[in-house]
Design a protein around this nucleic acid. Structure first.
Lengths: 162, 162
DNA sequence: CCCTAATTGTTAGTGCACTAATAATTAGCG
DNA sequence: CGCTAATTATTAGTGCACTAACAATTAGGG
């Protein structure tokens, strides 16, 4: 009775299933709120990064959001088309892209200040509950970043079953 | 000092950010493991549903996975192309789609039994920690399914600012 | 039997997120 | 200066996930 591994494949027991559903569900809660600001959820995260500091390079934003530059490029293009930011080359380093908030982009922050409270109320969660969940997610993210234990580090190529 | 709302827009404090990163990160851990079985993560979840019961209708799988049928249709098409399941119309109800495991699909379950343990070990999480995280996610999902409080139920159309 | 409505799937189109390939710039070295 | 390597962005291609539109079937009511 110590390892009921036979039931480990039950869908309702999978953390990955609960996690992906929770992620989609929470983003779905944001959707109507962000729509009023003309933003998708990934675009909102980019704006959060820029409200903290502007200008920033794409590489810098990529590191902050843990997203590939290839994922962010089209998002930034749409935000530029929406008039919320500009994309120019950094004068001293023509490889880097200087992403800078426009006045419209900076002004949008005022509307955004209401978002976290709206979401907390919609979810019926206290600030403390949100902090606990955030800490749990941060710990889980850290677990994925830790180096793999030796037994799990099998060569992928040799494991192809044919 | 009870409501430090000024910092509520800090990226590092956003539950939605931590949640989406955690989801992507954990799915990323599954990726090399599932690749050896020829599955993507969404395909793996479909297989989990079918290993519990086969045949099932698309509608039934859609309800179990909390996914739109339109999302599952191409996933099922690829799993059929991979020879893991068949798609036929239900004899008594030609609207419904009978999704049935092939022998190859059913046999794949044996390889899959090793997956949960591999992931737990890779993440360095005990069965109890996984259960706690699962419970937290389940609670969060339930929060998104609760009816919205009155104040958040503003008409979307009237809120368009421009 | 028709007409209408509900149920069930599929397809089209938008937007992420990833990898791989490409391009452009910069830096280091002779 | 020219060659090579590293850095940084972009583009192409695959696969999800969603909404909207469409098609097919079934069920219910004259």
């Amino acid at each position: 009775m110590s390892t009921p591994a036979e039931d480990d494949l039950l869908l309702e027991r999978q953390l990955c299933f609960a996690l992906t559903v929770a992620s989609r569900s929470v983003v779905g809660i944001y959707k109507p709120v962000l729509e009023r600001m003309g933003l998708t959820h990934p675009q909102y995260l980019v704006m959060l990064a820029l409200w903290e500091r502007s200008p920033r390079s794409l590489k810098d934003i990529s590191d902050a959001l843990l997203h590939e530059p290839a994922t962010l490029s089209p998002i930034l293009r749409r935000l530029e088309e929406a008039g919320l930011l500009t994309r120019e080359r950094v004068p001293g380093n023509e490889r880097a892209l200087a992403v800078t908030l426009t006045k419209a982009g900076a002004d949008l922050r005022e509307q955004a200040t209401a978002v976290p409270g709206t979401i907390m109320e919609r979810l019926g969660l206290s600030r403390e509950e949100v902090a606990d969940l955030h800490a749990a997610m941060t710990g889980l993210i850290a677990a994925t970043r830790r180096p793999a234990p030796v037994l799990a580090a099998q060569p992928v190529h040799a494991a192809q079953p044919g």
